[in-house]
Structure formats: structure tokens, C-alpha cells
Amino acid sequence: AEEIWQQSVIGDYLARFKNDRVKALKAMEMTWNNMEKKEKLMWIKKAAED
């Protein structure tokens, strides 16, 4: 689920960090860890469908 979420937001994060992939990935990891369980559930369901 986290991978699907990352694939959907990586472009936004890379743009925000001027294509600094290391910073973008760290920010994504922090965002994922801070997400509410119900927000993650949507992505977990999406992962299950694929």
C-alpha cells in the first residue's frame, strides 16, 4: 500500500524538492508515518484490488 501511495505522490514530492530524490523520499516516509489509519486504509484497499 505504501508503494502505491508513493508512486502516486512521488512527482509532487520531487517537484517540491527540486528533484532531490533523497529529501523527497525522506519527506514521503515521514508523511506516510504521520498519516491517519483511515487515510492509509484507502491505499491498502487500492493495493488489494491490484
Results as ranks from 00 to 15, higher is better:
1 A>F: 04
1 A>S: 05
1 A>L: 03
2 E>W: 14
2 E>Q: 13
2 E>A: 11
2 E>S: 10
2 E>Y: 14
2 E>I: 09
3 E>V: 13
3 E>L: 14
3 E>S: 13
3 E>F: 13
4 I>M: 14
4 I>E: 04
4 I>K: 07
4 I>G: 04
4 I>R: 09
4 I>S: 06
5 W>M: 00
5 W>G: 00
5 W>F: 07
5 W>D: 00
5 W>Q: 00
6 Q>E: 06
7 Q>A: 15
7 Q>V: 07
7 Q>G: 05
8 S>Q: 09
8 S>V: 10
8 S>D: 09
8 S>F: 11
8 S>A: 13
8 S>E: 07
8 S>C: 12
9 V>L: 04
9 V>K: 05
10 I>D: 01
10 I>Q: 06
10 I>M: 11
11 G>P: 04
11 G>N: 12
11 G>A: 13
11 G>S: 11
12 D>G: 08
12 D>P: 02
12 D>N: 08
12 D>R: 05
13 Y>T: 02
13 Y>R: 00
13 Y>W: 04
13 Y>E: 01
14 L>E: 02
14 L>Y: 03
15 A>D: 11
15 A>T: 12
16 R>E: 11
16 R>S: 06
16 R>V: 09
16 R>L: 13
16 R>P: 01
17 F>W: 06
17 F>S: 04
17 F>N: 06
18 K>F: 12
18 K>E: 14
19 N>I: 02
19 N>L: 06
19 N>C: 12
19 N>G: 14
19 N>Y: 09
19 N>K: 05
19 N>T: 03
20 D>E: 05
20 D>H: 04
20 D>I: 03
20 D>K: 02
21 R>E: 10
21 R>N: 08
21 R>Q: 08
22 V>G: 11
22 V>R: 12
22 V>H: 08
23 K>E: 12
23 K>L: 14
24 A>C: 03
24 A>M: 07
25 L>M: 12
25 L>T: 10
26 K>H: 13
26 K>R: 13
26 K>N: 10
26 K>D: 12
26 K>I: 10
26 K>M: 12
26 K>G: 07
27 A>L: 05
27 A>S: 05
27 A>V: 07
27 A>N: 06
28 M>I: 04
28 M>R: 00
28 M>T: 01
28 M>P: 00
29 E>R: 08
29 E>P: 00
29 E>V: 07
29 E>G: 06
29 E>H: 08
30 M>N: 14
30 M>P: 01
30 M>F: 13
31 T>M: 06
31 T>G: 09
31 T>A: 14
31 T>P: 01
31 T>W: 05
31 T>R: 07
32 W>C: 01
32 W>F: 02
32 W>S: 00
32 W>Q: 00
32 W>I: 00
33 N>C: 08
34 N>M: 09
34 N>Y: 05
34 N>F: 05
34 N>Q: 08
34 N>S: 10
35 M>I: 01
35 M>E: 00
35 M>P: 00
35 M>Y: 02
35 M>R: 00
36 E>P: 15
37 K>I: 15
37 K>Y: 15
37 K>G: 13
37 K>Q: 15
37 K>C: 15
37 K>H: 15
37 K>D: 15
38 K>R: 08
38 K>N: 14
38 K>W: 14
38 K>A: 13
38 K>Q: 12
38 K>F: 11
40 K>P: 00
40 K>V: 03
40 K>Q: 05
40 K>L: 04
41 L>V: 06
41 L>K: 03
41 L>T: 05
41 L>W: 06
42 M>T: 09
42 M>S: 12
42 M>Q: 14
42 M>N: 12
42 M>G: 11
42 M>Y: 15
43 W>C: 03
43 W>F: 04
43 W>H: 03
43 W>V: 03
44 I>S: 06
44 I>H: 11
44 I>C: 10
45 K>F: 06
45 K>N: 12
46 K>M: 14
46 K>N: 05
46 K>T: 06
47 A>C: 04
47 A>G: 04
49 E>K: 12
49 E>W: 07
49 E>C: 12
49 E>D: 10
49 E>Q: 09
50 D>F: 12
50 D>V: 15
50 D>C: 14
50 D>S: 14
50 D>N: 15
